[in-house]
Amino acid sequence: METILQIRDLTRRFGGLTAVNNVSFEVREKEILSVIGPNGAGKSTLFKLIASFLKPTSGEVLYRGERISGLAPHIAARKGVVRTFQETTIFRNMTVRENIIVAHHLRSKASLAGFFFGTRAAREDERAFGESADEIIHFLNLDDLAREKAKNLPHGHLRALGIGIGLATNPAVLLLDEPFAGMNHDETHKAVAMVRRLRERGLTVLLVEHDMPAVMKISDRIVVINFGQKIAEGTPLEIQNNEKVIEAYLGAEDEAIGM
């Protein structure tokens, strides 16, 4: 399979703290790759670097061979690398459908002025966005909530909406930061199935997650970060049996690693 992302010697310091320290790995097209590690290991920072929300102190991120690190986030998004947020980040005062429609921004062919004057291209865009939004809403099983204000959604559905917003941008690579956090067993089960279907849609998925059973079940490969450094990389089976990983997790907290 082809490489879609190359993370090269990526480092990010905050003052004296090195949140991400010389991390390198590659992401292949259409794989599900999870980044795991104890709290504060630097996973979210790594995602922000990849999606150009932060500038690296050194190192770079290449997307299909082209450097994207250090660009503005909306440019990385335009190229196809889009992140969702660790917290449930949505447009609270819009309905579910409005959230997803507005997130089609990158697909618009009409200009802003075009939307003001209601040109044919703008009307065509509106129609296409509506259709696509309905499809995404259906895909996420949010049909019954489409006209609900986003702030009134239950937690599990908020996460789904966050992913829906990401999907609307039509990304090639979607970075999901803790998509299963706060979900019960049943909700997680459904969400895992949904992430799998993302891949079937042709997306490459990067995932940060603490839910180890889910990570082990869903990932093609796993990258383990501890204190900003990559300490292991491999298939779920390799990771489960990796000495360094077990040590990092035992040293940091009592978190089972899915065994």
């Binding site: 447009f91 819009m94 921004h105 703008a122 990401g166």
Partner: peptide
């Protein structure tokens, strides 16, 4: 649509830039 985009900006600038 411009209004909706402005609204997205008002509600969450980070998210707005993540959708491009």
């Amino acid at each position: 649509r411009i209004g909706h985009i402005c609204m997205s900006l008002q509600q969450n600038e980070e998210l707005a830039s993540s959708i491009g």
